[in-house]
Each structure stands twice: as structure tokens, then as C-alpha cells.
Design a protein around this nucleic acid. Structure first.
Length: 865
DNA sequence: GCAAGGTC
């Protein structure tokens, strides 16, 4: 029997499609990468009309992603303009998943392949990534063996229809995605590298380690700054409002009611004119009722919920950021509480059982009553028609969850999704609107009120309810009401507020900036890059850095920040997708345009730089004198703003320092024997890691194997008293390559620190002195011997001994005073973590955990022999 | 260390 491999875009879809096509008769197993499932069954294959074995699996989004060749990785050596031509390569998008390998394994011996990727351009592109991965292991790959399934919803009807009308993948659409990837990469990286290096080399207080540019993030920032500018340029204007109060008397009830009526002209900017109107009104004692009208009105219920609306509601109503909301939604989905949360569609599938969803919720303490009312009270109303994007159905609840079942934010979001769903199948909210029109000396005034006749969906979506207003008194046309007060009120026009996150999402959606899945990422980006901060009410307030950047682009080349740029590029890409333009020529032309823009930008940068100068201080004026430079012997300054660094004003050079939280101090005014720079000591507190480092070597490793950002404990210098050759004790008890090195400054909480991972080994508390005997190793385990000395009265050695020398693993007296742990706050615990230390001491021999340290020492020392 | 796009 022949075999058909079928691939969907994500595991959940593979499961749904397999269940539908096999009529729930498939077996299922976990894939070798731990993320994907493989479902199998036997059934007829429409294109060839033969019985085949089906194998349905999936990828997890893109298999590959585009990047530059490694030779372009060095920011110092690569001129950013080269990035418009530099060679690129496709790399595995998520190496951890080993997706190409997984696909090629599963494709072995398969005769046909059916591609069930999402029916959009990205999906089409993933089709070809999949084909590439299986090309070598499938029996044959041609027009007769490769099929593309085109479906518009995940319903049995659609999926079966797609299976019966298989087509072929669309290379043009896929190529348009290739083009987009390449453009985004080249443009983003060129601008980002250029402006990061330029401004970081000049200013010391920008507090941002990366000044990024991107075709989506920059326009997103642009929206926030545009609003900021509107606020700043707003000039308050004084205007005047006529305020009139009349008295309605209800003889039957023997009651009166005061009514503030609204002037039809609303406001007037000229004081003299306003005073004239007031004087005119004052000529009358009564207001004549011209008309009383009552109209039945409706407030429309919502359309079905999609991702963007969910994010908006979460931000404005629940105070949750879009990223946070989506990660919760994802969890609710995988736990089976809601349907797939990433969708553009706002219309339910025709055969979707809406009432069944209501039935699931009808016993819920919070909204069960409303569900019953819809089901049994005959109030159920057909949902409004929205948009069908052909991707996934709208977001709906899948099963009932009690308040205690989900934690705080998860329940809040779930609560919203359920209420929104119930709202969509509820009647509209109906109310009567009564409007009373008045005439006073020829000027028109109105008073209106709403009275709810049927709350409809607002019963369950309470925040949408029409607030109860004062009832309209029983008044009649022609009646005259006494004017009890008439005055002029002086007010001022006020600026708009800063953009709310919800406004921003709307703007992004409107201009096609990002997609439902990437909108939260772009918003996150502009926050973490320190371009905007989120203030109360989730409003986005741009920082100095964000404002200066956008103003700079506007000065030099507004295209760089305008939202229209993205859509212009997408139009070009659509030509490729439609087969109307050649991939290569569109790409070449667009790259050329942006390269010119880039060159123009870099040669006209003074425009932007002038703005930076106003807001930021030069490197020379930043930081405090700290340690001596090895080249000029003068003091360098420690700049604390991100990225933390040392700057030598004399040499005009900067040097990297550790970026982790912790403190940096001078290390006993000692110098690196290689370059004469003063040594520094970094410590993340008593429980954290600590090490000695040379600021020059830290940025410019003296030995190729040392790498950047390596402290003295990783330095193979043969005689320096801080190198691994003098302070190294043994191989790390956990990681492969690390060596445990004595921290010579850790007195009295002595510790060994791994020079590769976050293991620390605390030993000999309160000892006065600890030294590593770098010439003598333990016969049994090959660790270097350690000598410990205590002051009188402090010793913990047996028999009140004041000093001892031996192996800290094999000598039981010493081993008893050794304790292993992890440095806190530096790394997250490893996945599937191997516990936090194994209690007292690394065990002696035979534990199998420790590696022979001597080889490593020998390797390092070999450099100098 | 850069982008944006999928998704886990």
C-alpha cells in the first residue's frame, strides 16, 4: 500500500484535520522532536483512487529563517551598507525542534505529500520549506506526487472538499514571502547597526543597548510620537458655553425637576458674541417647548471575537498588555477552555453549533442564567455577520470553567471571552430616546434621555450597558418652563490624551503594520528598546529617545517612519505573489531604493544628531572616573546607562563590562600582565556569581579560545595569579567545559565559581586564607589541592587545626566544609533541571559526575609550552 | 547584539 504524508502548520491543526478525515479512526504517536504528533489511518486517496496509508503531521510555523552568513556578524568589521548585498542563508528557525530532520525521517518511503499549511502567503512559503526538507527522503517529488490542500475553515465540510479538490502549491506567493524576508532583514539590520553604533559611540546616557529600526516597529513608534506631538503643539483655546437650567413641574405628582438643557450652538469662541447671546436669553423668563420626540433605538451587539479585538479589550478593559493576554489565551487554548486564539475571522461557520456552546455554560454561576434565558426563554438571536478571513473560526469558549479553576488573569480573560460569545447570540440592546427641544428668544436648546426597554446583550456584557438616566419629566409641546438659571461658563479646549494601547492596535491594523500574531511583538519591542513607556490606563508615552528618533527620521526622510512605506512595499510584493512581476527584479529594485535611502540617511545624519545633542550628554561628559586605562594610564569613566561600559576619554575608546545586575569594583589596584589595564571585580552578591576581569581582555580576548566577555578565570595566561592556571581547582561538577576557579576576593564567604556555567561551590566559611596549590593535584581525582588557613577560634577543622591542605573532594575532613549551589538570578533553572545542588559536597570518586580536570588544565597550559 | 513572520 502506498503512503501519503500530510503536513499542517501546527500540531493542533494536524490533530483536527486527522480526526475529520479519518472519521476519528486514527492512531496517534508523538514525534521525535517532542512537539509534533503523527496520526495514521487507512483510507481512499482521491487523486489516484487507491487505498493508501495516511500519515498526518505538522510543522510549528516556519521551518527556516533567513540570516546573514556568519562572516557578517561582527558589527565592527562589517560596514552596514554591505548588508544590502551581503550573502544570506536559510537557517533552521527553531534548532531545538530539529524540524528538517523530523520531516525527512517521517517522509522516508512516502509516495505522495499533501500540504495542509495555512492558506495565506506565509503558509505557501512554508509549503516549499517542507518540500525542501523532505526532498531527499521521499521516493519522488513532482507534479504527480505533490499536492496542496486549500481550505477556508476547519470544518468537516471544508476539509473533505479540500481533499477532493487538491491543487498544487503556489510558488509565486511563496517567492513574495522570500522577498519580504530578505528586505526586512537587510533594511532592519543595516539601519539598526548603523544608528546603534553611531549614537552609542557618541552619547553616554541613552539607556538603551540597541537602537533598533524596523519596517513595522518604527512606524508603530511613529504613531505614539505623532500623538505626543499633537499634545505638545496643542494651544488651549478659551470658549464659552451658555448654561441654562429650567424647572419642570408635574402637577399630578406635585413635584418639580430641574433640567440642565444643552445649547444647540454648543460653544462660542468669541466672548463678546457669547455675552450677547446670554443677554438675549435673559430677556425671557421661560423656555418654550418646541417638540417632544420619542424614538426607538438599538445598540448593536458585537460581532464574533477575533485576536485583535481580544487584545484591544484585554488592554483597555482588563489592564493586560497584548503579549500577556495572548500568552494567557494560548494557555487557555491548550488546556481546552477556548478555541484557537489567533484568528482574523469575525463570522461563525454556518454549521457551528452555537447553542451547544451555550448549553456548556448554562450551569455557570456567573452567566448560566443568561444562557438559559437564551436557550429556553426563546431570546436566542442569530449572530451578526462579520468577516471570514478563511483562517480559523472566531474565538469561542470550549468548556465551562469555574472561578477557582483558573488563576486571576486567566479567569478574567476567559470571563471576557465567554461574555463576548453570549453577547454575540443575544438580542441587541433596545432603548427609547426622548428628545425635548426648547426655544428661548430664538435660540435652540435640547434635553435628551435614554430609557432601556430591553437590555439584550448588555445583560451579560455589563460594561456596555446604558447607564440609567434621570427620567424625562412629563412635558408637552407648547408648554413653557420657568428659567431658573442662565449663565456663561468659560472653558478651554483640551489636548487629546496619549495613545492607548488599544488605539495603537487599531492604528496598526488599519495601516497593515504587523499581523494579528506580530502586533504584540512590535508593541513589546518599542517598550523594551526604551522608546515608549506604558503609563496608567495603558497609555503609551514616548521617551526622549523615541521622540528624538522619530523627529530625526521626519527631518531626514519621513518615509522611514510613515506607515505608508510598509503598504507600498507590500504592494510590490503582491505583484510577485500574483505572478505579475519578477521576483528578482522587484527585489533588486526595492533593495536599491532602500540602499539609497540608507546612504542618504547616513550622510545627512547631522539633522538627527542635533536633536540627540539637545537631549543626551556626550560620552565624555558621562560617567564617573573609575579605573586606569592600560594605554594612556589615565582614568577611564564607568558609564552606568545601558549598555554599561568603560570609556577612556583620552583614547576615545569604549570597553565592555558585564551587563548583569551586580556591582563592579576596582580589584586591589592590580593590573593585567598582558595589557596593563587595571583589573576589576564583578559580584552579584554573596549568593551570586563573582569574578575578576580585565576590561581590555573582556572586549578583546588575548587568546582566540577565550572569546569575548570572559573573565580572568577563563584566561590561560601561564603566570598571572588570576588565570585558570593558578586558581583552577577541578572540572565543573555540572557542565562539560567549565572549570571551577577560586574567587580570590570572596573572603570570608569563600567560593569556587565555574568559569562557564552558573555553578558556585561555597567552602571554608570564615577562613582567613585559601590558596590553590597549582603544582600539586590529588592522586585520586586529579583536582588541584587547596590549602586553607583559619584564625584562632574560627576554625571548623577537626581537632581545632588551624590549617590543612588536600583535595576538597577526596579528603573527608575538607569535603565536609564544601557546599554546592547555583548562582542566583543569572540564569533560569535549566529545563528539566537537575535539582539545586546535591547537598554536601560533590561526592568523591565513582559518582561519574565529575570529569577529569587535569586534561583541561593541560590543554590550557599547552598554549605556552 | 540586528527584522518580521510563523508557532510551542
Amino acid at each position: 500500500m502506498k503512503t501519503v504524508l500530510m503536513v499542517a502548520e501546527k500540531p493542533s491543526l494536524a490533530n483536527s484535520i486527522a480526526t475529520i478525515l479519518s472519521k476519528n479512526q486514527c492512531s496517534s504517536r508523538k514525534g521525535s522532536n517532542g512537539a509534533c504528533n503523527i496520526a495514521e489511518w487507512t483510507e481512499n486517496f482521491p487523486p489516484t483512487q487507491e487505498k493508501v496509508r495516511y500519515k498526518m503531521t505538522s510543522v510549528c510555523g516556519h521551518v527556516m529563517s533567513l540570516d546573514f552568513l556568519p562572516k557578517y556578524n561582527n558589527w565592527e568589521k562589517t560596514n552596514p551598507v554591505e548588508l544590502f548585498q551581503g550573502e544570506t542563508e536559510k537557517k533552521e528557525a527553531t534548532p531545538k525542534l530539529r524540524m528538517p530532520y523530523f520531516l525527512s525521517q517521517e517522509a522516508k518511503g512516502c509516495d505522495y505529500i499533501v500540504l495542509w499549511l495555512d492558506c495565506d502567503k506565509e503558509g505557501e512559503n512554508i509549503c516549499f520549506e517542507v518540500l525542501d526538507a523532505v526532498s531527499k527522503s521521499m521516493k519522488k517529488l513532482d507534479k504527480n506526487t505533490v499536492f496542496r490542500a486549500k481550505f477556508s475553515s476547519i470544518t468537516a465540510k471544508d476539509i473533505v472538499a479540500a481533499m477532493n479538490t487538491l491543487g498544487e502549491p503556489d510558488e509565486n506567493q511563496s517567492r513574495s514571502v522570500d522577498a519580504r524576508q530578505e528586505l526586512d532583514l537587510r533594511i532592519g539590520c543595516a539601519f539598526t547597526r548603523f544608528q546603534t553604533r553611531y549614537f552609542q559611540g557618541k552619547y553616554g546616557d541613552m539607556d538603551s543597548s540597541l537602537i533598533s529600526y524596523g519596517p513595522c516597529q518604527t512606524p508603530t513608534l511613529g504613531f505614539c510620537v505623532e500623538r505626543h506631538d499633537q499634545i505638545l503643539t496643542h494651544k488651549p483655546e478659551t470658549y464659552y458655553v451658555l448654561q441654562v437650567q429650567v424647572l419642570a413641574t408635574n402637577a399630578a405628582l406635585n413635584s418639580t425637576q430641574k433640567m440642565n438643557i444643552d445649547w444647540e450652538r454648543e460653544r462660542c469662541f468669541d466672548k463678546d458674541v457669547a455675552v450677547m447671546f446670554l443677554n438675549l436669553i435673559k430677556t425671557e423668563n421661560t423656555a418654550r417647548i418646541v417638540s417632544v420626540t420619542k424614538k426607538e433605538k438599538q445598540k448593536e451587539k458585537p460581532i464574533a471575537l477575533n485576536t485583535v479585538e481580544l487584545m484591544r479589550a484585554a488592554s483597555s478593559g482588563l489592564g493586560m498588555g497584548p503579549s500577556h493576554a495572548m500568552s494567557i489565551a494560548e494557555r487557555l487554548y491548550t488546556q481546552g477552555y477556548i478555541s484557537y486564539p489567533r484568528t482574523e475571522s469575525t463570522t461563525y461557520a454556518e454549521n457551528f453549533d452555537l447553542k451547544d456552546v451555550l448549553r456548556q455554560q448554562q450551569n455557570h454561576p456567573d452567566w448560566g442564567a443568561e444562557c438559559k434565558e437564551l436557550l429556553q426563554g426563546g431570546k436566542f438571536a442569530k449572530p451578526r455577520k462579520g468577516h471570514d478571513a478563511g483562517d480559523h473560526p472566531p474565538i469561542t469558549p470550549c468548556r465551562a470553567a469555574g472561578r477557582g479553576e483558573l488563576d486571576g488573569d486567566a479567569f478574567k480573560l476567559y470571563d471576557y471571552i465567554v461574555r463576548h460569545f453570549i453577547g454575540t447570540v443575544s438580542p441587541n440592546c433596545k432603548y427609547d430616546q426622548t428628545t425635548v427641544k426648547f426655544d428661548i428668544a430664538g435660540e435652540e436648546f435640547t434635553y435628551s434621555g435614554k430609557k432601556v426597554t430591553d437590555p439584550g446583550f448588555t445583560e451579560v456584557m455589563k460594561w456596555q450597558a446604558i447607564p440609567p438616566e434621570e427620567a424625562i419629566p412629563q412635558v408637552k409641546e407648547g408648554e413653557r418652563l420657568e428659567i431658573t438659571e442662565a449663565k456663561l461658563s468659560e472653558r478651554q479646549t483640551s489636548p487629546p490624551g496619549y495613545l492607548t494601547e488599544s488605539d495603537l492596535i487599531t492604528l496598526m491594523e488599519k495601516h497593515g503594520i504587523g499581523t494579528d500574531a506580530s502586533i504584540p511583538v512590535h508593541i513589546n519591542n518599542i517598550c523594551t528598546r526604551n522608546y515608549v513607556s506604558i503609563e496608567s490606563g495603558r497609555r503609551l508615552v514616548p521617551t526622549h529617545l523615541g521622540i528624538v528618533l522619530v523627529h530625526g527620521y521626519l527631518k531626514i526622510d519621513p518615509d522611514l517612519v510613515k506607515p505608508t512605506m510598509r503598504s507600498a512595499v507590500e504592494k510590490q510584493l503582491d505583484l510577485i505573489a500574483a505572478g505579475k512581476a519578477d521576483f528578482k527584479s522587484v527585489l533588486r529594485h526595492t533593495i536599491e531604493v532602500f540602499k539609497r535611502k540608507f546612504i542618504y540617511f547616513t550622510t545627512n545624519l547631522e539633522g538627527m544628531d542635533q536633536l540627540f545633542e539637545v537631549h543626551f550628554s556626550s560620552l565624555a561628559d558621562s560617567g564617573r572616573p573609575f579605573s586606569r586605562c592600560g594605554k594612556c594610564r589615565r582614568y577611564m569613566k564607568l558609564v552606568e546607562a545601558k549598555p554599561k561600559r568603560l570609556y577612556c576619554p583620552t583614547c576615545d575608546e569604549t570597553y565592555n563590562v558585564p551587563q548583569q545586575n551586580g556591582s563592579i569594583k576596582l580589584h586591589q589596584e592590580l593590573k593585567c600582565p598582558l595589557d596593563d589595564f587595571e583589573l576589576l571585580y564583578f559580584t552579584a552578591g554573596a549568593k551570586g556569581t563573582s569574578f575578576v576581569f580585565c576590561p581590555y581582555c573582556y572586549s578583546n580576548p588575548p587568546f582566540p579560545e577565550m572569546g569575548k566577555g570572559v573573565p580572568c578565570s577563563g584566561c590561560a595566561h601561564p603566570t598571572c595569579s588570576f588565570g585558570v592556571n593558578r586558581l583552577g581547582v577541578s572540572g565543573c561538577v555540572e557542565c562539560e567545559a567549565g572549570v571551577l576557579v577560586l574567587d580570590p576576593a570572596s573572603i570570608p564567604k569563600w567560593k569556587l565559581v565555574c568559569n562557564k556555567c552558573d555553578v558556585i561551590v561555597r567552602l571554608f566559611d570564615d577562613a582567613a586564607k585559601i590558596t590553590v596549590n597549582s603544582t600539586e593535584a590529588c592522586n585520586a581525582c586529579e583536582s588541584q589541592l587547596i590549602k586553607v588557613e583559619y584564625k584562632e577560634g574560627k576554625t571548623k577543622l577537626p581537632g581545632e587545626k588551624l590549617a590543612a591542605e588536600g583535595c576538597i573532594y577526596c579528603n573527608p575532613e575538607l569535603n565536609a566544609l564544601v557546599e554546592k549551589s547555583h548562582a542566583v538570578m543569572l540564569k533560569r533553572p535549566r529545563a528539566g533541571g537537575r535539582g539545586r545542588g546535591r547537598g554536601r559536597g560533590g561526592r568523591g570518586r565513582g559518582g561519574g559526575g565529575r570529569k577529569a580536570p587535569k586534561d583541561k588544565m593541560a590543554q590550557l597550559a599547552a598554549y605556552f609550552v
